[in-house]
Amino acid sequence: MSFAVPTEHYLLLSAVLFCIGVAGVATKRNPIVVFMCIEIMLNAANLGFVALGRHFGDVGGQIYTMLIIAVAAGEVAIGLAIIVSLFRTRETIDLDEADLLKL
């Protein structure tokens, strides 16, 4: 069956958002913002899953999305807890100043 907006459009949008997320992870220095860019990447994958679910007539696409949202929620909790813990000890969370562990 053909849709008004073909699935490929959604997948292209997903790819563009994914690359924006990668750009953010590569360039930002604040770990919270880096984490937000990772969330953009996860959302891009979610968009892909739902679009593909519609394409295949499969509810699975949407169920995967919900599972991923749940996992992402857990990940955010742990990630922000780590950042808070680091901030308490160091009073700064600047990634470039996280230099205690050297190469």
Partner: peptide, 30 residues
């Protein structure tokens, strides 16, 4: 502080790798 930094580095790069893998799973679904 070293332990906190270790956890932060591990977490950020691990989350990044998970996101990459998830996108791969999405394409596999495709």
């Amino acid at each position: 502080a070293k332990s906190d930094e270790a956890a932060l580095k591990y977490f950020l790069l691990g989350a990044l790798a998970s996101a990459l893998m998830l996108y791969g799973i999405m394409l596999t679904y495709g």
